[in-house]
Amino acid sequence: MSNESSTQAYADATRAKGDALIEVSGVDKYFGDFQALKDININVGIREVVVVIGPSGSGKSTLIRCINRLEKHDRGTIVVDGIALSEDIRNIQEVRRETGMVFQQFNLFPHLTVIENITLAPREVRRLPKREAESLAMEMLERVKIPEQAHKYPGQLSGGQQQRVAIARSLAMKPKVMLFDEPTSALDPEMIKEVLDVMVELAEGGMTMIVVTHEMGFARAVADRVVFMSDGQIVEVGTPEHFFTDPREDRTKLFLSQIL
């Protein structure tokens, strides 16, 4: 394959298939002197599942944290559902309402019960009445298969259950896209599957997802596209088959040889 067509293939790969829900173009991000993101270009389409992998410190988490503005990018543009992220706080709030995020450390609110955790944002941000918010929360808990835990406190649940509550909490806001920041990295091995199962179902249900993970099995089974990042750059983008059977870049090959 000639060099030119390879570049073309890369450009094609960063483009979403259908309409783009998220458009990231030319994004740089610095922490002090350290450049965490270098000229990131990636589009994510509606109902698409994009898995981001790469060694630690490669900027994966920073990238998805820029998408809901938990981190502020320094150059380039990020457009989520037609809203360009800017300094304007109303823009940011609007994007955050449409974007669910699941953290590595769950970050449930320990002083609230499970159902209070889930109903909080729908009631306070979407202004849903209490009863409606509660039936919505129960629906979400059914989806993550732990409705019986509704009135417990997060501290009384296992790690896997907590992470599923965190997913339900995000889903209750009816987001257009879900961001997962290493959702299974803080879990004991026997609990990883229950969380991944929920995520697989979510993907099959047509949710748009960006997932930062080290679970290659998940990437292979669910991803529409896999993004490999290293040193703050997107090194390679492709379908899972292409990615795991025929990686083009040396850095990708090296990474895959280390983890597989």
């Binding site: 955050r96 609110f109 909080l120 944002a121 806001m173």
Partner: peptide, 26 residues
């Protein structure tokens, strides 16, 4: 932990509500 503030932000809670409902009670 700062994660509490981030979780509240990610859910779209404005800063005042995040303070009143999440941070201060804890």
């Amino acid at each position: 932990p700062y994660g509490q503030t981030e979780a509240a932000q990610a859910l779209g809670l404005p800063p005042a509500k995040s303070m009143r409902l999440i941070i201060l009670p804890q």
